[in-house]
Structures are given as C-alpha cells and as structure tokens.
C-alpha cells in the first residue's frame, strides 16, 4: 500500500482567500507549502438560502476532523462575513476553533 502523507492539519479560510483579488497574495499556495489542507467557505455574497447549507456542511466537516483528532485552525479574517457566519454556526454546535498562529 502506498504511504498516506496527510498532514492532519486543516485550516478554514474564507472565499476571498481562495479567490484573491488581483495583486493579492495567494494564501492557499502559502498554506499548501506548510502542508495544511483547506476548508473553503462559500462566498460571503451568496444568498442565505444557498450559503447557510454550505456553511452547515463546512461545520460538519470540521467537527469530523476535530473528532478524528486533527488540528483545525481558522485563518484570521475578522472582517469577513462568511467567516463570522461559520464561527457562529460552529459555536452553535458547541465547538470552537482557534485562529492560525
């Protein structure tokens, strides 16, 4: 069997990080270099009826990683509404995740 090289480290990032505006830094490539996997949140301008189930799915996945003993962190984006929505939904499930140091 081939070796499994997963990092067991996952960082939650807002859409603006996955799809940076022209000239902005490519953070997913940066975190890739450090071995982190990415859970990308939906765009913050999506209608709530589309965004909310996607956020719920992201929360479910993060809980699966936490329960599996994986390290999970948030990429600090204090002013991103999508990240706010995710943090609130995660808190409602009784879980918290710290910012990436």
């Amino acid at each position: 069997m081939r070796g499994d090289v997963r990092s067991r480290r996952v960082v939650v990032v807002p859409d603006v990080v996955v799809n940076p505006p022209d000239g902005a830094s490519d953070r997913p490539s940066d975190v890739a270099l450090c071995g982190w996997g990415v859970v990308a949140l939906p765009p913050s301008d999506l209608p709530a009826d589309i965004a909310q189930p996607l956020v719920t799915a992201a929360v479910d996945q993060v809980i699966a990683f936490l329960d599996g003993g994986y390290e999970v962190a948030l990429l600090p984006c204090a002013d991103d509404p999508g990240m706010h929505r995710f943090v609130a939904a995660l808190a409602a499930s009784g879980r918290t995740v710290a910012d990436l140091a």
Binding site: R2, S29, G35
Partner: peptide, 25 residues
C-alpha cells in the same frame, strides 16, 4: 473537497499533505 484538503481522503488514501498544489497551480 480533497483536491484542496487531502486530509478528507479515506484512510491511507492521501497522496499529498493537504492542498494538491499542481491542480491549484
């Protein structure tokens, strides 16, 4: 999902640490 996060792969199935950089590039 796993193209950006190989940690989601089945046990023993991750070909990279996290982000599959060649696809992202």
């Amino acid at each position: 999902h796993c193209l950006l996060n190989a940690n989601a792969k089945v046990d023993e199935g991750a070909r990279c640490q996290g982000v599959h950089s060649p696809v992202l590039a």
